[in-house]
Amino acid sequence: MTTFVPSQNSAIAVTNALLTTSPPHVSLDEALCVMRSHFGGAQEIKALSGERDRNFMVRSDAGRCLTLKFINHAESTAEIAMQVAVLKHFAEHHFEREVPVHIPSSLTSQDWLDIKLSDGAVRVRAYSYLDGSPGSQLKAEPEVWRDIGRATAQLTCAMQPFTHVGAHRPFLWDVTQLPLLKPMLSVIEQPALHDAVQRFMQRFEQQIQPLIQTLPQQVIHNDLSPSNMLSCAEGRRVVGVLDFGDMVYAPRIAELAVAASYQMSRGENPLAVLDAVMAGYGEILELTEQERTAVVDLVMARLVQRIVITSWRAAQFPANSTYILRSRSEAEALFKQLMTFWEPSRTGAEQR
């Protein structure tokens, strides 16, 4: 595999160290000690999966379940503060689905702690653990896709008043910053796919990026994948939203495009899935004509991100490659399928 290694002075290395730094090394015993010292006694502890941080589920002596997050060393103070602030925001603003509740230290009342462990200093924070079925259990049905659209719009409404300086950051997972990935395209080994992605990125930079900058903007969750949603037991409704670590200030319609991009490969007709998600969204928030025009472009942009970034990160962290690459093949197949009509439609628009 051809591996892209960013130089120390590149924008990718400077602004996205978070995606290239391994999670902190924390043992179960160390996590248990931190829990008992700062958040109360513990009856049970287990490690959770994660790409950037080291996470544990802990059941306290009082029976409360919480997530103990040992934060990636590259995450800035502004980014940590933003993730704490948004959970506090939800405590005061209505949202129809569940989100975690921020839990400060019971010893010091601090929002996060600086802890010294055997592998060095690390920051840690805690929030309630939401129990439920994973979003991957949501059924591939039109009414479920509409509910995902409704949940996305409700989340957009709930987050609309939220602002934070940490959201204004260069970030590889921000679809509006897709051109940042151009130096990384060497990770795509298939020539035909490489050329198709390159053509898309060129048109994105020339035609799409200027348009989306004019759309309504706000802080968005930016990663409504099945991994970050909880399903009811029957698989017919989104009951919770997790992990606000990818928040950015971006066009609000990008939230819908990202959510839809993870669902569109689950139906025989990807565009019918997109229509269902958009229909549910439209029950809560009216889409402007410009937003409707941009949705497919932003879906395609997220698919390119999933192809390029996951390939790059899997090469850097082979021990975690199965988790990192869990949706790459799906994204690749959907991108190829959508390109068959997207490219001719864009070419036709240019000629008119």
Rank of each mutant, 00 (worst) to 15 (best):
T3R: 15
T3W: 14
L18W: 09
L18F: 15
L18K: 05
P23Y: 06
L28P: 06
A31N: 04
L32T: 13
R36L: 11
H38E: 09
A42M: 08
K46V: 14
A47R: 14
L48D: 07
M57I: 10
V58Q: 05
V58T: 04
L66A: 10
L68I: 07
K69W: 10
A74I: 07
E75F: 09
S76E: 05
A81M: 08
Q83R: 08
V84M: 06
H89N: 08
A91R: 10
E92W: 08
H94K: 11
F95I: 15
E96T: 15
E96F: 10
S105H: 06
S106C: 12
S106R: 13
S109Q: 14
S109D: 11
W112N: 05
L113A: 06
K116S: 13
S118W: 11
V124W: 08
V124T: 05
R125N: 03
A126E: 03
Y127D: 01
D131A: 13
P134T: 01
S136P: 03
I148H: 02
I148D: 02
A151D: 02
T152L: 05
T152R: 05
Q154I: 01
A158T: 07
T163F: 09
H164M: 03
H164F: 08
G166D: 02
P183M: 07
V187I: 12
I188M: 07
I188Y: 02
F204E: 00
Q209N: 09
P210Q: 04
Q213S: 12
L215W: 02
P216W: 06
V219F: 00
I220E: 00
N222C: 08
S227G: 10
L230A: 03
S231F: 01
R236T: 15
R236N: 12
A250Y: 04
A250N: 07
P251V: 04
A254Y: 08
Q263M: 15
A276C: 15
T288G: 14
E291F: 09
D297M: 02
M300C: 14
L303Y: 09
A314P: 02
A315Y: 02
Q316D: 00
Q316V: 04
F317S: 03
F317D: 03
N320V: 01
T322N: 07
S329L: 09
A331R: 00
A333D: 06
Q337S: 12
M339A: 14
T347L: 15
